[in-house]
Deep mutational scan, measured.
Amino acid sequence: MQGVVKVNSALNMRSGPGSNYGVIGTLRNNDKVEIIKEVDGAYEIRFNGKVGYASKSYITIVN
């Protein structure tokens, strides 16, 4: 499943599905991501070869 990031500035990509996990990357508006699955209000995603988590509130599914 594919998604597009929709933010005003940037969205943190984290090592786990919550803000208490470390930041492993930054997503920008209109970045395209692969959605692997939904976990606790976040999506597990793949972006630029990395797998991490981002809030589903800022990712629009575009299948």
Results as ranks from 00 to 15, higher is better:
residue 26 T to F: 10
residue 9 S to L: 10
residue 54 A to K: 01
residue 39 V to A: 06
residue 9 S to N: 12
residue 55 S to M: 09
residue 60 T to S: 11
residue 37 K to L: 07
residue 32 K to V: 15
residue 53 Y to H: 01
residue 43 Y to E: 00
residue 43 Y to V: 02
residue 11 L to T: 10
residue 15 S to N: 09
residue 20 N to F: 10
residue 56 K to D: 02
residue 28 R to C: 14
residue 21 Y to K: 05
residue 34 E to Q: 10
residue 17 P to F: 05
residue 44 E to F: 14
residue 11 L to E: 05
residue 2 Q to W: 15
residue 4 V to C: 11
residue 42 A to W: 15
residue 45 I to K: 00
residue 6 K to C: 14
residue 52 G to T: 02
residue 53 Y to M: 02
residue 25 G to C: 15
residue 34 E to Y: 12
residue 40 D to R: 10
residue 1 M to W: 13
residue 17 P to N: 06
residue 45 I to D: 00
residue 60 T to G: 06
residue 32 K to Q: 11
residue 33 V to F: 03
residue 43 Y to I: 02
residue 58 Y to E: 09
residue 29 N to M: 08
residue 7 V to T: 15
residue 6 K to G: 05
residue 12 N to P: 15
residue 63 N to Q: 12
residue 8 N to L: 12
residue 8 N to I: 12
residue 46 R to L: 12
residue 58 Y to G: 12
residue 51 V to Y: 07
residue 26 T to E: 09
residue 19 S to V: 12
residue 19 S to Y: 12
residue 47 F to H: 09
residue 13 M to Y: 06
residue 4 V to L: 10
residue 16 G to K: 06
residue 44 E to T: 02
residue 15 S to A: 12
residue 59 I to G: 00
residue 24 I to T: 06
residue 47 F to W: 11
residue 37 K to A: 13
residue 42 A to V: 14
residue 38 E to S: 07
residue 40 D to H: 10
residue 53 Y to T: 01
residue 41 G to A: 07
residue 41 G to D: 12
residue 40 D to Y: 11
residue 9 S to A: 11
residue 32 K to G: 04
residue 24 I to C: 06
residue 26 T to M: 11
residue 10 A to M: 14
residue 5 V to Q: 01
residue 58 Y to S: 09
residue 18 G to Y: 05
residue 40 D to M: 10
residue 21 Y to C: 15
residue 21 Y to M: 08
residue 50 K to F: 08
residue 13 M to G: 01
residue 48 N to F: 07
residue 62 V to A: 08
residue 57 S to N: 13
residue 10 A to K: 14
residue 49 G to N: 09
residue 18 G to A: 07
residue 35 I to V: 11
residue 51 V to P: 03
residue 42 A to R: 09
residue 10 A to I: 15
residue 49 G to M: 05
residue 9 S to G: 15
residue 1 M to Q: 11
residue 57 S to E: 15
residue 38 E to K: 03
residue 29 N to L: 08
residue 50 K to V: 13
residue 13 M to I: 15
residue 24 I to L: 06
residue 44 E to S: 03
residue 25 G to S: 09
residue 25 G to Q: 10
residue 27 L to G: 00
residue 29 N to A: 08
residue 12 N to Q: 14
residue 54 A to G: 03
residue 8 N to G: 12
residue 54 A to R: 01
residue 28 R to T: 08
residue 32 K to D: 04
residue 61 I to K: 06
residue 54 A to C: 13
residue 22 G to L: 13
residue 18 G to L: 04
residue 33 V to T: 00
residue 54 A to I: 13
residue 47 F to A: 07
residue 22 G to E: 15
residue 48 N to P: 00
residue 60 T to Q: 14
residue 9 S to P: 05
residue 52 G to N: 01
residue 30 N to V: 02
residue 55 S to T: 10
residue 30 N to H: 09
residue 3 G to E: 01
residue 62 V to W: 08
residue 19 S to M: 13
residue 53 Y to N: 01
residue 59 I to L: 03
residue 8 N to H: 13
residue 44 E to Q: 14
residue 14 R to F: 14
residue 9 S to F: 14
residue 50 K to Y: 07
residue 16 G to Y: 03
residue 33 V to E: 00
residue 17 P to S: 05
residue 57 S to A: 14
residue 29 N to Q: 07
residue 17 P to G: 03
residue 17 P to Y: 05
residue 49 G to E: 06
residue 50 K to L: 14
residue 29 N to V: 05
residue 56 K to T: 09
residue 60 T to W: 14
residue 17 P to M: 06
residue 2 Q to L: 14
residue 63 N to V: 13
residue 63 N to F: 11
residue 45 I to P: 00
residue 25 G to Y: 08
residue 18 G to K: 06
residue 37 K to W: 06
residue 61 I to C: 08
residue 53 Y to K: 01
residue 52 G to S: 02
residue 54 A to Q: 01
residue 59 I to W: 01
residue 34 E to G: 04
residue 7 V to A: 12
residue 49 G to V: 02
residue 31 D to N: 05
residue 59 I to A: 00
residue 10 A to T: 14
residue 36 I to A: 02
residue 48 N to K: 12
residue 23 V to E: 04
residue 38 E to G: 04
residue 60 T to Y: 14
residue 38 E to W: 04
residue 58 Y to R: 05
residue 28 R to E: 08
residue 47 F to M: 04
residue 35 I to A: 01
residue 50 K to M: 13
residue 54 A to W: 02
residue 46 R to P: 01
residue 28 R to P: 01
residue 9 S to C: 15
residue 19 S to A: 13
residue 32 K to A: 09
residue 46 R to D: 04
residue 19 S to N: 13
residue 9 S to M: 11
residue 16 G to D: 04
residue 39 V to Q: 06
residue 38 E to D: 06
residue 15 S to K: 08
residue 44 E to I: 12
residue 55 S to W: 11
residue 61 I to S: 04
residue 37 K to T: 10
residue 7 V to K: 09
residue 33 V to R: 00
residue 24 I to S: 04
residue 10 A to V: 15
residue 52 G to R: 01
residue 31 D to W: 05
residue 5 V to K: 01
residue 18 G to P: 03
residue 11 L to K: 10
residue 36 I to T: 05
residue 13 M to R: 02
residue 62 V to Y: 09
residue 58 Y to P: 01
residue 41 G to C: 11
residue 11 L to P: 02
residue 13 M to Q: 02
residue 48 N to Y: 06
residue 60 T to L: 13
residue 45 I to A: 00
residue 1 M to F: 11
residue 27 L to R: 01
residue 18 G to E: 06
residue 60 T to H: 14
residue 57 S to M: 14
residue 28 R to A: 09
residue 10 A to Y: 15
residue 63 N to P: 13
residue 27 L to F: 02
residue 11 L to N: 02
residue 15 S to Q: 07
residue 36 I to H: 03
residue 35 I to D: 00
residue 59 I to K: 00
residue 10 A to R: 14
residue 23 V to L: 06
residue 35 I to S: 00
residue 37 K to M: 09
residue 4 V to E: 05
residue 17 P to K: 04
residue 59 I to H: 01
residue 40 D to I: 06
residue 6 K to Y: 08
